[in-house]
Simulated assay, not measured.
Amino acid sequence: MTLAAPIALRLRRRLTRLRLTTLAAAIVAGLGFGVAAPARAQVDLGAGLSLTGTVAGTTDYLFRGISQTRNRPTVQGTLELSHESGVYIGAFLSGVAFQGGYDARQELDLTAGYRFEIGPVKFDTYVIGYTYPGYTAQPGFQELAYLEVGARGTIELGDFTLTAAANYSPNYFGRSGSGVYIEGGVDYKVPVLELVLSGRLGYQFIERPARFGITPDSYLYYGVSVSREIAYGITASVGYYGTDLSERECGGLKICNSRFLASLTLKF
């Protein structure tokens, strides 16, 4: 069974529900979400290997527009070991706090991928394992860990960077069935002020939304941000993020509401 037709139909329906003013603002700003990822420092280990990493403090942990920390701040970190061939492995660690009795307190994502270029386009293909160390599903609760495979393409056009990505999970968060996520975005480097203006617009389809915790089986995710490296490898960013889910559609919770988010990231 192909997902393309139902996904396209649901996307058209959801687009009509999104407030036109919000959608227009997201598109003008560069197709939606996101704080641009700061450039990471690189440590040469020899034999074609290099190590990069970041540590960040953020006022919230948003994943595709939904808070993973109940609208609270947290600390995050990344580490990546890459080879000049394009092969890499990486990890992402963050605090989490879910509603409804789930006692997970941290998220550890493990990634393996391959980067390559075809002409001016840079590609990144990857597998991500989302895990929640210390969490054990009790009776009546679902397992949280899941896998995604995905691909991302990026092209630079002067001061603009265009990106598009697609991810697929055979059994998404909370054992909610097939999950498909598509995203497009733009980053713009302001030459004079050394700012990066960013935007993303994403669409998430979930086969069994009730297990995920929402009413509809899909939603839109958008946001705009500005970031700047200030000193000593530290990048500051601030943005505005949201989804087209109402509080009622989000299980009566405020974790899907629009919000501002700020972060400081140290690269090492």
Results as ranks from 00 to 15, higher is better:
residue 84 E to K: 14
residue 144 L to C: 05
residue 68 Q to L: 12
residue 178 S to T: 13
residue 60 D to S: 04
residue 65 G to A: 00
residue 159 D to E: 11
residue 85 S to I: 13
residue 119 G to P: 00
residue 106 Q to F: 07
residue 71 N to F: 04
residue 72 R to C: 05
residue 157 L to M: 13
residue 183 E to T: 12
residue 64 R to Q: 14
residue 74 T to N: 07
residue 105 R to I: 00
residue 97 A to M: 04
residue 180 V to I: 14
residue 116 F to N: 06
residue 94 S to V: 01
residue 86 G to W: 11
residue 122 K to I: 07
residue 103 D to Q: 13
residue 91 A to L: 14
residue 145 A to V: 02
residue 143 E to G: 15
residue 148 E to G: 06
residue 137 A to R: 12
residue 90 G to N: 07
residue 83 H to Y: 06
residue 93 L to M: 09
residue 109 D to T: 13
residue 114 Y to S: 08
residue 125 T to I: 14
residue 91 A to C: 05
residue 122 K to V: 07
residue 181 Y to T: 14
residue 62 L to K: 00
residue 83 H to L: 11
residue 96 V to M: 04
residue 102 Y to C: 07
residue 60 D to W: 05
residue 167 N to K: 15
residue 69 T to P: 02
residue 56 A to P: 03
residue 177 G to V: 09
residue 156 E to N: 04
residue 144 L to G: 03
residue 66 I to S: 00
residue 175 R to Y: 02
residue 100 G to K: 14
residue 129 G to Q: 10
residue 160 F to P: 04
residue 166 A to V: 15
residue 98 F to H: 08
residue 111 T to Q: 14
residue 91 A to E: 12
residue 78 T to P: 04
residue 101 G to K: 02
residue 81 L to T: 11
residue 171 N to Y: 08
residue 156 E to T: 10
residue 148 E to L: 09
residue 152 R to I: 08
residue 158 G to M: 05
residue 114 Y to I: 09
residue 108 L to P: 09
residue 173 F to W: 01
residue 173 F to P: 00
residue 108 L to D: 06
residue 66 I to W: 01
residue 117 E to P: 04
residue 81 L to K: 13
residue 65 G to Y: 00
residue 172 Y to D: 11
residue 110 L to M: 10
residue 97 A to Q: 13
residue 117 E to W: 07
residue 80 E to M: 13
residue 57 G to E: 08
residue 81 L to A: 11
residue 99 Q to G: 10
residue 129 G to Y: 14
residue 140 G to K: 11
residue 65 G to K: 00
residue 122 K to T: 12
residue 82 S to G: 13
residue 88 Y to V: 11
residue 105 R to Q: 00
residue 146 Y to K: 08
residue 182 I to G: 15
residue 176 S to R: 12
residue 122 K to C: 05
residue 172 Y to N: 13
residue 81 L to V: 15
residue 92 F to Y: 15
residue 151 A to I: 15
residue 153 G to T: 05
